[in-house]
Amino acid sequence: EYSNDLSSIRPGKVSSELRKALGIPEGAPPWISIMKDIGKPPAYSSLAIPGLDTSYDNDGYRDSKSVNTSKLHE
């Protein structure tokens, strides 16, 4: 029942629902500045993180070597 919803949820892309919960209508979520101090998530160490490696956008973490986005995503 969740699968349709889950496919649109990706790291680096903060939905309006999560923004509402966090109380941040726009811009980088609060953990981006913490990542500047403690480093990137180990699981995503090879990805480019907007707000950290590039200017902030809400389009998701990206492969830092190629500009290839997930093939699972339609």
Partner: peptide, 17 residues
């Protein structure tokens, strides 16, 4: 909060792993 859903928590956690 009662407003928090499993989807919100899923989305929050996958930002990190």
């Amino acid at each position: 909060d009662p407003e928090v859903t499993e989807l919100i928590m899923y989305e929050l956690f996958i930002q990190f792993a």
